[in-house]
Design a protein around this nucleic acid. Sequence first.
DNA 1: CGACTTAGGTTTTAAGGTCT
DNA 2: AGACCTTAAAACCTAAGTCG
Length: 264
Amino acid sequence: MKKMMQMKATEIGYEEDGETAHIKTEEGEDDEEEEDEEDSNEKGTAKRGSKKQNKESKKRGGGFCKLCRLSPQLQKFTGVPELARTEVVKQLWSYIREKNLQDPSNRRNIICDDTLHALFGVDSINMFQMNKALAKHIWPLDLDDAAPVKSTQKEKQRKQEREEDSDDPKRKKKRQKGGNSGFLAPLPLSDALVKFFGTGESALSRADVVKRIWEYIKQNNLQDPSDKRRIICDKKLKELFDIDSFNGFTVSKLLTTHFKKAEQ
DNA sequence: CGACTTAGGTTTTAAGGTCT
DNA sequence: AGACCTTAAAACCTAAGTCG
């Protein structure tokens, strides 16, 4: 599965030169970005590059499965004195879901109830910071005293600081935007399209048409099971588009010929 | 700009295992 | 020896394509 993901990624055209990383960093504040970028750029590139090759042969799991000693608070939470880090994360999330502790307006934020507050010492925490906060509660087994796992990277602090204040504003902005532009204006449909829908409507917005096409695709189960973006045309679709199959992303393109231009 | 779709990459953290 | 990969979680974001 993951192998597939990698392949797809390259297919789609993600560049290896750190462009993706850059896009991501954009979300954060710009000042720290530069140093950061250098770091993650290199790393990311190498990672992605070799991942492709190595993923296939690597499956054995690293040191994450190793049991770690848990802080008293975490012991209380999990009920056991030792647990693999991955298991702790798992339990945490099941607890969060069970108690419905995700902030509805930003589900990456976790509202801490008393139990979590005891663990993290904050009222709310985002999912990324949570992982970091968790580090204070997970100790190596061989360390008798409560020495938190050594934190090697100071630079990384900057990263999550970036994460802290970058976070959602951008997204919110996006969400808030909204409002109608003229894109929703109905456009005259081709006869073939009118016939295809069979509702008698002769004009619909592009978005509406796309929506209905997808409804039809789903109703008739026309998505290629091995790649759901691929649409296998049935007779009706074939008549409409005159092709055997198409990529879901190109619906819009295919529809072009079925919109009569107002001026025409 | 935003309507619509899906797949999947990215983000965080840790340290041991594995590969070069 | 040192670089890189592994695990878990969920949400977000991006990609193409079109239009006024």
